[in-house]
Design a protein around this nucleic acid. Sequence first.
DNA 1: CTGAATTTTCAATATTTTATGAAAATAAAT
DNA 2: ATTTATTTTCATAAAATATTGAAAATTCAG
Lengths: 168, 168
Amino acid sequence: MKLTEAKQQFISSWGAFGTQWGINRTMAQIHALLLVSPHPLTQDDMMEQLSISRGNVNMNIRDLVSWNLVERVIVSGERKEYFTAEKDIWKVATQIIRERKKRELDPMLKLLSQLEQVDGDKKDKETKQFVDMIGDLKKLGNQADKLLDMLVKAEQNWFTGSLLKIFK
Amino acid sequence: MKLTEAKQQFISSWGAFGTQWGINRTMAQIHALLLVSPHPLTQDDMMEQLSISRGNVNMNIRDLVSWNLVERVIVSGERKEYFTAEKDIWKVATQIIRERKKRELDPMLKLLSQLEQVDGDKKDKETKQFVDMIGDLKKLGNQADKLLDMLVKAEQNWFTGSLLKIFK
DNA sequence: CTGAATTTTCAATATTTTATGAAAATAAAT
DNA sequence: ATTTATTTTCATAAAATATTGAAAATTCAG
């Protein structure tokens, strides 16, 4: 496979994987494009390379910036804005974890805490079953929260070295 | 909050969280409904409680069964089929991990291995950058794979006890 | 077998999500 | 200040996804 073809393939597949995870296809593709681009790109570059509209690029690039996966870079002497993606994959992963934790896990734990406050006799079988279920979910959510925090704080290497040895 | 209201809330929010993760809202809601139902339910029960059509219930329940999160149960003396959800939340979580690994992570690793085979001189800077990136992604994917395997094999308790202590 | 109950399928429809493109806003150059 | 380049917004259009409901298929009881 030629390099250009491989990049194309990567971009397109990355988009497809993204949708499985509730991520807009174009957003994932733009991210992939920036990952495989040696130099920062302008919005026009992205429009052209992905055959998408200006508005589409603009909205999705803003989203990526808000996720801290992409940043604007200023190229001296150029009027247009350029964009570049963090290339360190471990950093990318931990940043995604950070954001999803904040946007999804935290709200879910908050909801579960509220639901635990259901009134009614905890001796009542049905109430108890419900409260227990919510409690178990919360416990799981908190464990996930801690595990993810550890990952985010760890070095990628440490992960490979220590973590994987301990278990197994 | 009353129990019925809390269950309602749980079902509806579970559906909303599901969509963020690329899971059909109704599928998530059916799962939630079964999680909070003390007894197995028929398709008619679900139609009524969620106000959705027969076809919708049927397709989504089949999906849930294929994910091994829900199973058909036979109630003696009854002609209709009943469905029940695994209530052990840790089992639910590991089963979801198992399935997503199989359906998403495995194919992604396969793709990355293919892309690594891009032809062209590895001394060429652009080729090298691309191959390195793919390699890094693959490494990350493999680490995730191993970590998830460990989780799936572990006892929930072991997780809380050992894992979280080791890190800190 | 026959017929009633139940489940499954799937074309048509509705809903939700995403993308477009032109107009408005902003920023820079002259 | 005016013109030109660039970015942003957002109403509308298009595409993707989910839902309905009725017909077909299946299952089971008698």
